[in-house]
Design a protein around this nucleic acid. Structure first.
Lengths: 219, 219, 219, 219
DNA sequence: GATGAATGAGATTTCATTCAT
DNA sequence: GATGAATGAAATCTCATTCAT
């Protein structure tokens, strides 16, 4: 109450008090995390607000204080799912002077994520996200944006490799990037179908394909 | 006419007339096709029975003559989506004595599908299917079965290439197959996000990766 | 066809040809019998027209040639259920000069019906009928009419017994009749609840109550 | 308030606050009462949830907070209809040393119920219950249980009368009980058909039949 | 006359959202 | 701020009835 009065003079009311803001964010986080679990378990649409409430130990009324509706929770969950630090990892790899080492770092960085015990939830939720993206403009936009960022980052990597003469310069860099992303996303799909699939073996294959060591026949 | 008379005398006749059977299948087909469009457009769960009815130019009651409920339509749509003649294509490729030619045939066979104007609908529906698979046992089973068939087929291809010394024999064949499938499915995901993506360029990259021509650096 | 022409001159067209009429009645009978079974099994309202069709080995379209709708089948079933030859039995009993013999004949006539193996179906259907009567004016009317006939017949019986000095003349004859009917209907209810209940023992009690032999204490 | 605070600290609390529990019961009561009226008016199956909603001044959603479905409301209504304090009345009568006085008390206790202006609703609902019982296992069970209780109670009455020599010991006590119940239920049926029927006259007849005073002829 | 596929109104039920407490 | 009972629109599904064949 005091805090509120303190700030009631601030023009434009750009800030709600910090304590509240922190609380607000914490609550939102809590709700999105709960929603995430539910979505991974049942999918976006079959998940009811009650499911999320139960998972978050909150009442329906409380939820609506933090989110305008289910749609907004889905969007937040999608944004959350996109929030991986992909760009940073890519930038780090780019610093690597040896192309194969670069690919190794990339593959390791991305595929070591599957060691996280929460990865299965995340993978399953990703499938939901893809489906929603195909159907929901707002979600597609967010997905698209993140995709563009990753695409741009890997584009640098690929073009650098081509510049170095390690990757065939006549291949479309965009298509090479798409293939790299496909190797990652396509694996997540298979991992969602069967979580026991061998990640390390797959990572080795991915690295070999990119680094040109898988082909042992005539050049 | 004769059949009709025949039927009116025999109770408990084992066969309903063929016309009915044909009609039954035709109607089911019609409904599943309509559902497919709706699913691609709105997703499984946001699609209402009314949507499907409208698309199929049928009344709700008529739908329930052919399917016990929405769930069953979803399952049929999933089965339909799986019904691609993958196994045949793979077997044909396997007959090819040259490994790169084999990969070329495979890549061509699979990626030429995207030329079909209906491919977009099919891709978007696939995303729905993946999401449903994560959440619906019956659908996962069907998906899993089809995946196993394709996996087995490509397994032959990969082991043959290893036997010939064209692919590194120390790589896990299963993981190699997974990567091939990932290159395909991962592209479908990207195509669903942006249908204008260049399929031919991507196919060239896929072929180059498998055939070891993408890497132009030191061996 | 020929028959039809033969009659096409008859004024007023009161008769449809006898063969057709017989056929019509036979079909109606067949349908009502089927309906009766269904009603006894599931009740009036949960029984669907399809249930009746299946039981009657007829198509829905055929049913509607004989009955205007479900309502009409229910009414016919009710009329059928009422069509017992009660009045005749009562008239016969009335001829008996000895009152106790008269009661014996009545009780025997009515309770021996429960020996019929179809009696259970009939009893269960009666419960449905009673429920419908409470709710459906047309059915109540039909029920009411039959009830009045039986009531009148038993009224004669009771008044005759009072005239002879065998039943207390100060008791309301209508109430006595009601009690006789209650002893019958109330038993049917119990028989529907438990078909193994001992009919003969009950009949002896009913006779004893009416004939004044159940009371063995001081007068 | 205290309770509320208490509650907010303890997760997994075993009791929900009493207010809620009371409220729950009150609402259920309210709904069942409304349903009862509807059932008496239209029968179980023709009554729609909307009918019950309207009668209870509640929205459809609200109903489903208290009952899982229509079936459950029907069952509750049936249980409610059985909840008469029959056993108590019978026990009281049993205390009476004079058999005719005992019968008088019984008849009076049961038939005075028809003076209640709500009795008509109750009777009509009973017919629905009987019909449902014939068709619905769960309802039959509940009915059967209550019937057994009443049967046992009246069995004591009858055997006591036989012990005293007032009722013929050679008559089956169970059948005598059945007849007593039939005199009651059979009357309810007639009262549902015609609510103006003279209850007092009928009660006198019932008493006379049991007490052996209806027969005025030779013994 | 018979068939049975199709219709579509209407019933049950769910669930996102609101709002009095 | 929190609660959770209530709302009511909308979804799924049923079934009496019709009608082209």
């Amino acid at each position: 109450m005091l805090i509120k009065n303190e700030h009631s003079f601030s023009f434009g009311a750009k800030h709600v008090p910090k304590v509240s803001e922190a609380h607000l964010e914490a609550r939102k986080e809590q709700i999105v995390r709960a929603a995430f679990l539910c979505f991974a378990r049942k999918g976006f649409h079959p998940t009811t607000m009650q499911d999320i409430c139960a998972e978050a130990h909150l009442s329906p009324g409380a939820l609506y204080r933090y989110f305008a509706g289910k749609e907004e929770i889905i969007q937040s969950a999608c944004d959350e799912a996109q929030a991986a630090q992909d760009a940073g990892l890519i930038a780090e790899a780019l610093a690597e002077p040896d192309t194969r080492a670069m690919f190794h770092r990339l593959v390791h960085a991305f595929f070591s994520r599957f060691d996280d015990p929460a990865a299965d939830v995340y993978n399953r939720a990703s499938l939901q996200l893809w489906a929603e993206m195909a159907v929901n403009d707002r979600v597609r936009e967010s997905f698209s944006h993140n995709h563009a960022v990753v695409h741009a980052g890997l584009g640098e990597v690929v073009r650098e490799a081509q510049r170095r003469g390690d990757l065939d310069g006549s291949l479309d860099p965009g298509a090479l990037v798409s293939a790299m992303i496909a190797l990652y996303d396509g694996f997540r799909l298979q991992k969602a179908l069967d979580p026991t699939i061998d990640t390390a073996a797959y990572a080795r294959v991915a690295e070999a394909l990119l680094g040109g060591t898988s082909w042992t026949g005539a050049r």
